[in-house]
Amino acid sequence: MTLLNLTGIASGIWVEAPDGSPIPEAAQVIISFKRLMAEGKALLQTSLHLGLQLEPHNALEEVAQYIDALSLIVIEFPVFTDGRGYSQARRLREEFGYKGELRAAGDILPDQARFMERCGFDSLVLAAGVDAETVRAALQHYSFVYQPAADGLVTIPEQRHGTPDRLKVS
């Protein structure tokens, strides 16, 4: 497995704490959605750096109250055809204002990396057999985008008519 850093904020080693096992102390710990729901209030009282593992069906509304306490959210792609994680990522960024690291894991094709970057992911966990160089090359294929997304890029329709108001510095 390779961790591919897209935005420069990927934060290194995290320890997974499976449901039911004790939480390791003073570490960067990833817990499940279920565990966050059950123990989130107590965990907030500790000095832990908390990471959350999200499945595609998990409801983001339930996570909202913990958003500022999370430093990593891992969104799982169980199969590459399951695109729910793209919407989860954009909603976390644009609706819930999540500022921490957003990481994609699971079944990821090289040609999907660009879409993930645009939806607000900072890092990708590449499975064995996925070549990081191919992914890096795929990230560079396109010079322009047509639609706004979580990356805030200036879109083609905006470029055609000068700097849009949303990007003007007052």
Binding site: R90, F115, A149
Partner: peptide, 14 residues
């Protein structure tokens, strides 16, 4: 057409 072309969020719909 433009908005939907290579849409990053909606390229793996159900």
């Amino acid at each position: 057409r433009q908005w939907s072309t290579l849409h990053p969020e909606f390229s793996f719909l159900p």
